[in-house]
Amino acid sequence: MMEWEPQIWVRAAAFFGGGLCIGLGAIGAAIGEGYTASVANESMSRNPGLSNVVLKDMLVGQAVAESAAIFALVVAMILLFSSFSNPGWLTAAAIMGAALSMGFGAIGAGIGSGFPAGEACRGAVRQPAVANKLMTNMLIGAAVCQTPSIFALVVSFILLYTDFSSMPVWPAWAALVGAGLATGLAAIGSGLGGGTTAQASVEGIARRPESASSVTIVMLLGQAVVQSPAIFGLLISFILLFGTYQPSSELAPAMALLAAGLCVGFGAIGPAIGGGEVGRNGVRWVARNPGAGQVITRIMLVGMAVSQSTVIYAMVISLVLIYVV
């Protein structure tokens, strides 16, 4: 096997990676858009007279949710049709890293963006007078949901367009694949969590339109905290991408770098989903009981901070794997 030319492996990695990227990347947007459409149907059946407004909300929301899948499509197209200059073993590893990053990275953002879009359809029927306000809030919330997928896109492009040929193949290949996995997996939870938080804010504004400004601020606060696991993943990716590695013929240093990516990637999923649940109820109850807004915001932030603790453990283990062992 080892006497095969690296170009062959680069082509193979590009085709396999292209399929993997859009295959994984298509999961999220389809689920999110399906959820939006299901709520749109339910809302139209309650008040068919408002079907035009609901249809507009549905299509705008679905378009935002689609963007994550389009990023994955772009990366897949680049992989299929670019001719990689100076192909080496590390080019193949970088291609796999880029595909994994964008493929996994699109899942959470796609599903998450569907939640506020669906709620905007429901809200448009409940409170037709504030349909525009709901649309604005839905767009802000869904845009924040997309940020983890943009992190994944950035890491993919860095992997595809940086020249890694000065790095030693062992163990740097594992660092490149690990960098893709760290951001890609870490984006899943933050996309989903940002979506549940945004959903509650749209619901809250539909119930009490006068609470719109405070609800939007609490939503952004909650979403910002929910994004932090994705940012930890991005941080580990950058450390892995721009590290300097000693050439080694052993397996263990390479596996340590791969494990560092997996560790923070998996570890970020749960805290972000949990933070999203906190954000959902925090925002919902700020809208329902504005008098207690300050107390609720405080406990929301404390609760989110505590549920972030395990991703911080995961980041510490990743850093130990990169720098200590």
Binding site: G189, A252, M255, A256, L258, A259, A260, G261, L262, C263, V264, G265, F266, G267, A268, I269, G270, P271, A272, I273, G274, G275, G276, E277, V278, R280, N281, G282, I299, M300, V302, G303, M304, V306, S307, Q308, S309, T310, V311, Y313, A314, I317, S318, L321, V325
Partner: peptide, 26 residues
């Protein structure tokens, strides 16, 4: 090394979700 990374990575999912549910109800 791989086991350590996967142990902490997967092990972090559950507490994150669970603690989030606690705080959500709070």
């Amino acid at each position: 090394f791989l086991g350590a990374g996967i142990s902490m990575g997967l092990g972090a999912i559950g507490p994150g979700v669970g603690e989030g549910m606690v705080a959500a109800k709070a």
